[in-house]
Design a protein around this nucleic acid. Structure first.
Lengths: 365, 365
DNA sequence: CAGCGTCATCAAACCGGTTTAATATCTAAG
DNA sequence: CTTAGATATTAAACCGGTTTGATGACGCTG
């Protein structure tokens, strides 16, 4: 006797009539592995072996199973599979950002797209959460981890003394920091070298003849802000240039304009300013122009990100471009490898690119 | 005898010793409903009843269960629950966009954030996919639907003759179109009235004295592009103004600049241009300025979206702002209601806002 | 006190997969 | 013609929840 445990509905046998193969009864419940097994005249185990590329299935049986799968348009149920294997094949990304910054930042959508291109071929999915504050964020991670929805999480926008690395470690879930490596180093991190972009900017300005360069950095408390500020100081020191204290802003245009005025109000205003993002840089250009300065003749401006608009304004913005898409893809691959027990190996990320346009020029003498 | 089917690990009985309640053995496997049942001295069924607010549980038993849950820090496994209930409490969003447009568009991140704020209180999660082309997109929907990962999906960026409404109908999954209602009307849709923004723009320009207004519309083939173009024609007709054929662009800055030159090269160039998004509008300003025109004195410009940069350039951009966050939240609530068998009822969305800044002025006489 | 309805409780089945241990079949060697 | 060994196949247990049908305890009524 061949048939086994299955309840297996009606049309099992050899009769394949005028039913369009892929569509099935629409709206009805989807076929299960049991249906496939019945149709192929094998056991559920055999079907499972076939779709998981396990040995011990005869070519004949394998073919029958594959035919049945094709006929029914079956696909294993993700939840059931996750239940058995204890792996959800899903990664989580929690973003804590004020909504108004969300639409500003070119990073988020591109990074998500990059993650996706890395995840899709591996059969992983991405669940996304956007939360307003730290408390909610904590709960989000906790829920995702505890109810087994995700196998691992990305940690973005890390702050100095961010509680999350310790938190995920305690929770026992795999995690990957997106950004420069953390001090403690509990959690692996994958990030491009923000510093090199800043150094490129400084060296570019220096080679144009600038000696007195200001910096508008990002919101305080972020690891990447600190990293860039440090890099900036280092670059100035290396180039043997004097330092103007960097002005902190919060990545918004208004803050960028304010910071610009602050720098231009100095007794001896800088001849060039490096901004932590393009939005602030563009706002800076507008601010400088409103004071009667011309860019780049009276003030050189360097941005960071290379947003699509950077090329569409006057003057086109000299800026630092990072390949966020590739970064996201690499992060996805790294985190998957981590959750699957593999060792973490920092992938090579493409270096930042320095895009010279028309917002920089030699200073007036 | 009280204990039943459970294998129930070690410390079930009354001994609750010096184990820190919330943390448990970190890294170990998470507690199951069986552990909770054993600790509370009830059956799994009773625990299930408690957490699902079902009647038929004595106050004493309920309290014991709640205590046990608190002590173990237990949370039901999402996959297991989905398996039984056949509901994953997850919604899917598939975006098909060229990556370079992704970072341009203020819509995507805000909309996702809006969805999240709607979903989180309902206990739903969002899985996201970003795909490059139509073929991949189809597969994405099919996989999400078939493997039971999601209960419903959002359909964005609908094209005219988009196959997806029919596709999801055939697949038998709940879906919600994000945007103006479809012609066929198979799938419910939730969108703001794009047209009213365009009409506001036209009436604003007309009241300033403009009589000859150009339009740079979005990429052809999108439902919302067509909707806006239609609205534009309607608005001109209503205002009894002559029509310049709208110029199609693809939402990028380069296309916006090109379209602008095309309009300004006309024998009789328009005195004002309405753009389908801010990025093209800003590129248009730059293009016009490069021809020696001044904005708004020689040319008035109206954008669409109100990106953060709109306020940071010179001149600040007059534009149409929609409350995408609220839209996303409403969409989330609507789709959840749909998947749970509720009727679809189009929520009231806040009307678009018309933000007058300095890029519009009366035409030269 | 028998008979009945109500309520609390639980064992077992079920959801749809994976995995294990046992069995059936086939082949090659002795 | 056995017998050992390899290979194909399957029944059954399991993952962690939900749901159902049965059972037992209880309070009421007649």
């Amino acid at each position: 006797m061949v048939r086994g445990q299955d309840k297996a509905g009606g049309s099992a046998g050899g009769s394949r009539q005028a039913m369009p193969p892929p569509s099935r009864r629409s709206g009805g419940s989807r076929p299960t592995i049991g249906d496939v097994a019945a149709l192929a005249q094998v056991s559920k185990a055999t079907v499972s072996f076939v779709i998981n590329d396990r040995p011990g299935v005869s070519p004949r049986a394998r073919q029958r199973v594959l035919d049945a799968i094709g006929q029914l348009g079956w696909q294993p149920n993700a939840g059931a599979r996750a239940l058995s294997t204890k792996r959800s094949q899903t990664l989580g990304l929690v973003m804590r950002r004020p909504p108004e910054l969300l639409s500003t930042d070119p990073f988020f959508p591109q990074f998500v797209a990059g993650i996706e291109t890395g995840l899709a071929p591996l059969g992983y999915a991405l669940v996304l959460q956007v939360v307003p504050d730290e408390e909610t964020e904590r709960q989000a991670y906790e829920r995702l981890a505890r109810d087994g929805r995700v196998d691992g999480v990305f940690l973005t926008d890390l702050r100095t003394d961010d509680p999350r690395p310790a938190f995920v470690t305690e929770l026992g879930i795999s995690a990957l920091i997106v950004g420069p490596p953390q001090h403690g180093g509990q959690v692996p991190a994958l990030g491009v070298d923000d510093g090199s972009g800043v150094r490129r900017a400084v060296s570019h300005l220096r080679s144009l003849g600038h000696r007195w360069i200001g910096h508008v950095c990002g919101a305080a408390g972020f690891v990447h802000t600190e990293a860039r500020c440090d890099a900036w100081r280092g670059a100035l020191a290396d180039a043997d240039l004097p330092e103007i204290p960097p002005v902190a802003a919060d990545f918004t245009g208004a803050a960028g304009a304010r910071a610009t005025h602050q720098l231009l109000d100095l007794d001896r205003p800088p001849t060039a300013i490096v901004y932590a993002n393009d939005l602030m840089a563009i706002a800076g250009i507008t601010a400088a122009t409103s004071r009667g300065l011309r860019v780049p003749e009276d003030l050189s401006v360097v941005g960071f990100d290379d947003i699509p608009l950077a090329d569409c304004i006057a003057p086109p913005l000299t800026t630092v471009r990072q390949d966020v898409l590739t970064w996201g893809r690499a992060a996805a691959q790294a985190l998957v490898s981590l959750t699957e027990g593999g060792e973490f190996q920092a992938a090579e990320l493409p270096p930042v690119e320095f895009v010279v346009r028309a917002s920089t020029a030699p200073p007036r003498t």
